[in-house]
Amino acid sequence: MALIRWTPGLMGWERDPFAELERMKREMDRLIGAFFPTRGLGRTAGVFPAVNISEDANNIYVRAELPGIKAEDIEISIEDNSLIIKGERKIPEEGENVTYHRREREGGIFRRIISLPTKIDADKVTATSKNGVLEIVLPKAPESKPKQIEVKSG
């Protein structure tokens, strides 16, 4: 077995080959993104429901379009710092004497877990559903709120 003397810094990446791989992966993602623009949308997680997550200074907002799903058929829970949305969309049968021209709406069960980017106050989370859009408001924990530091002139 031949032993090759390891000379750090010779090629510039020996110290952490994984960091170099990571950098190459980022570069590839950037190139692919340049060729296939996604209309400003991020990649979806491939899990129903699709969500939009936003934040302001005090809250994190998670919204999902869930038409025809009654509020009582949605189960929302917080575990550690993850949000879990579970439920079922029921498409009622329309009777035996009907025939279909189109059938595009689908029913089924769903369960999604979303890791939250900051610590939240789990006791103060609220969820409302309006016109088939679910909105979950997750207040940020005091320690993760931005703090304004006043500069006093001396």
Binding site: I53, S54, E55
Partner: peptide, 9 residues
Amino acid sequence: DEKYLLQEY
């Protein structure tokens, strides 16, 4: 005042 963190739809 909201800023998107993730937009899937």
